[in-house]
Design a binder for these strands. Structure first.
Lengths: 331, 331
DNA sequence: TGCATTTGTGTAAGCGCTTACATCAGCTCA
DNA sequence: TGAGCTGATGTAAGCGCTTACACAAATGCA
């Protein structure tokens, strides 16, 4: 891994410029010369140093991604979609997890210095930092949050889907609801969902916090809620919290949906396999990642230079956990 | 992000060497000079170009990781442990997912060219490629597979734990077993587990393949198995497959562990929350990642230059899914 | 006070590439 | 047959840093 273009040039009896041209296919090279070069490359096992190339080209050919954590399928699915497209576009992906880290801002700035563009999950970086990155000219796509100036934002639709979900539940005849989700950060996905359902259900729904968006936290919060003042339906901020709620109900000997209906959000794989299968809102997670990678590519290559705010559509997926509802089709 | 050390030097009225020294703390710099430099850095919002630094230092300050996929907690947990320690050591992490990719070898070699060292999950890269990387002098840690020459390997203990698990199940009085796991690749973790249980149970256990190590595949394979010729106990290659088996049993109206016992491997969070809670073997996933990062650091810095093969200890975790067993302690 | 250190700073040579520009054959075509 | 091309190659100037080395100024000590 430490043979340089000079050695190849010497061995092939040409200049380094010719080697470079032969390898990249830029500029004309005589067939015979190319042969010689390729032979030398082969013999020496030469691979151009990424650092040299990048420094000369003035680009990293790498994208960054900042996430709080990797717990659960949401982050990993988005990440995989992102990595796949980035790879397709010839870019590597450099990751940074912020949960439990100190000096997050420094870490993120450092990351920004080693990539051509950055994907940031909504809650993984504080707003002032985002603003600073924008000011520094970092190419940025922020995911799962409301639009902000200077950066692309990308999210799935929340409000309308939340209203649809709420209306569906209301159609079951339920009258006392709870929204089980983490502390609401204004403008993030969960906040939008909460606003959406509340706009339909009004005072009939109360918000209940969980520590995090995990099965465990959903379990704890749901158990407390169900013991204390059982609502007829629990709308959860996401599928994992909902899975926790299902477990809590089971532990308390409650039937879902007989005693309490439960819904999730995201449509992760486990939602379909849960018992009862989870009514949820399907959000295109891979697609989010893929779009982010493409958006970043546009910003980096300069095809586009004004921020764009994209919202992907979602789909209400009705399954057993919200109760019998003959009009709807099950998946 | 495009202000260079030259501009800082000019503004501070010093040479670029002094700027570099002031910023890195290498070599002596007068307090007053440092002030001037820091002021200029501040005003210009200077961040040293990572490419320039890396090229000059001759190191990327980045590690790579190659995984097949990110499905389930195993990969993400290892990855997070790895990233955390790498970050602590001042190294970024560049990821590469190989599942469904064409030209994997090229992708991996490309990755090798942009990092100082590589963590590779056992099944993510073909053996010949590993050998080639070793030959090229790539610093390498391979995880979850048997030792191979030239590279560090790192895994959790399998054989003894598998025997312990098998003996535990035999102690319940079960006599007909199935091992539910993916097609066995010689030398990988699952293969070791299979060999371990078989060494105890002999002809009483049969191997049943799953397409992948996922809940879904576990579900499908288990359903087929349970319908066809129900064993008394199903030893699963990992927790996710086991969760699938639990779901299959439930769908078929079978009681676990009454009608069939089920065990997993890994002790992912869902194992504890499953109903019944899953008997499994706890493997220190974060620790694996963390160790890999440290091992790589040793190889990169040259503290150590001979390969090391490390095996971390595991722990049998007995829960309800294998049936009542008063002698053991439940967690 | 003079000499040997130490301290502070600058100069310049890399690190490994890409590419603009210069050069020079060998052709084409009038 | 020579002007004008085109094609093939080399030269050298970056890209943005780090650091060995040189050197001048400041300091220590006898």
């Amino acid at each position: 891994m430490d043979v340089t273009i000079y050695e190849v040039a010497k061995r092939a009896g040409v200049s380094i410029a010719t080697v470079s041209r032969a390898l990249r296919g830029t500029g004309p090279v005589a067939a015979k010369t190319r042969e010689k070069v390729l032979k030398a490359v082969e013999e020496l096992n030469f691979t151009p140093s990424r650092l040299g190339v990048s420094l000369a080209e003035g680009r990293h050919a790498a994208n960054g991604v900042v996430f709080p954590d990797l717990a659960g399928p949401y982050y990993t699915e988005v990440l995989l979609g992102y990595e796949e497209v980035a790879s397709e576009l010839g870019r590597s992906v450099v990751i940074l997890s912020t949960k439990g880290r100190t000096r997050v801002n420094d870490l993120i700035k450092d990351l920004a210095g080693r990539v051509d563009g950055l994907l940031v999950f909504g809650h993984a970086a504080p707003d002032p930092l985002i603003a600073e990155l924008v000011r520094l000219g970092v190419r940025l796509v922020v995911i799962s949050r409301d639009p902000l100036p200077g950066a692309d934002t990308l999210r799935s639709e929340n409000t309308a889907s939340a209203r649809a979900l709420a209306e569906h539940l209301a159609g079951h005849g339920y009258e006392r609801f709870a929204f089980l989700g983490a502390p609401l950060t204004s403008g993030d996905d969960v906040d939008e969902r909460w606003r959406g359902v509340r706009s339909v259900l009004g005072g009939a729904i109360e918000a209940v916090a969980t520590r995090e968006y995990t099965v465990e936290c959903g379990f704890d919060a749901a158990r407390a809620l169900l013991k204390d003042r059982r609502p007829e339906a629990i709308v959860c901020s996401d599928d994992e919290v909902a899975l926790g709620a299902l477990l809590a109900a089971e532990e308390l000997g409650l039937d879902v949906p007989g005693d309490v209906a439960v819904t999730g959000w995201d449509d992760i794989m486990a939602a379909r396999h849960a018992r009862p299968a989870l009514t949820t809102v399907r959000q295109p997670m891979r697609e989010l990642g893929a779009r982010a990678a493409r958006a970043l590519d546009e910003l980096i290559t300069g095809v586009r230079d004004t921020p764009r705010h994209l919202i992907l559509t979602t789909e209400l997926v009705v399954r057993a956990s919200c109760g019998p509802h003959p009009q709807e089709v099950r998946t």
